[in-house]
Design a protein around this nucleic acid. Sequence first.
DNA 1: AACACGACCTGGTAGC
DNA 2: TGCTACCAGGTCGTGT
Length: 267
Amino acid sequence: MPELPEVEAVCRNLRREAMGARVIQFHAARPNVIAPQTNEDIAQALANQTLTRVERRGKNIYLHFGSGAILHTHLRMTGNLFVIPDIRFRAAGTRAWMEIEGGRGIVFDDPRNLGRMRLYRSAAEAVRGLGIEPLSPDFTAAVLAEEASRSRQPAKLFLMDQTRIAGLGNIYAAEALFRARIDPRKPMMRVRRPKLDALHRAIVDVLTEAVESAVLAYSSPGHFNEAEEFDCAVYDRESEPCRVCGRRIKRIPQGGRSTYFCPGCQR
DNA sequence: AACACGACCTGGTAGC
DNA sequence: TGCTACCAGGTCGTGT
């Protein structure tokens, strides 16, 4: 589920439904969700605190509370964070939950149990190591070109490196490269300026469109509306004809994951 | 520094 | 039906 657009949708839902709510209690059902911190650490820090801000950086969610405490959540592969009207009726598999005013709850569901939560005391510490935010004005073609000039990484791995640009994952990295007609295996420093400009445009466009889709797809709490799903041109389309040139989409391993691309368009 | 790879977890599905 | 193998939108730690 979650790359930047899906995480953004999660954040907007939380803002709409839980902003200003006071925390009654916090509990992680599995210790590894919050390890090395403990339920006591987090429950104590958040008790009676008001949710003042919901922030997203890349794929990371930060819940800011009145005391200055920050609860960081990373959804990893299958996590989801959302508000439910009655905390007593949370799902059996809920990994962690917060009771908030009115008997409602913020629940963290995650079938694979890879997602993590952590309490921070300062914003600087919480966002350490994260690269540039691709949907901010700071992300320009010039910035991308500068980063690219210093990297021999294959283009796809470059885009997925969260210390460079924060938020692209396996799907949208592949889609952006397709739109910019760049071979995912090409070392970044060898991609020429016109294509880097196209890539910058493609990243912003793909993410912006995908945010719109994700907001619609996740508009009902904890639910996914397939009809609104972002329409991928290459991702998960191995052997299908390319929409532009008709060649068959290829799947290759890169960094232990699948990369999809069109060998006709992307060079 | 850069890269490959396994670990972390669970569930779904394709193939036999 | 049941088993196996492989796949999955992410990241981290280890080893080369």
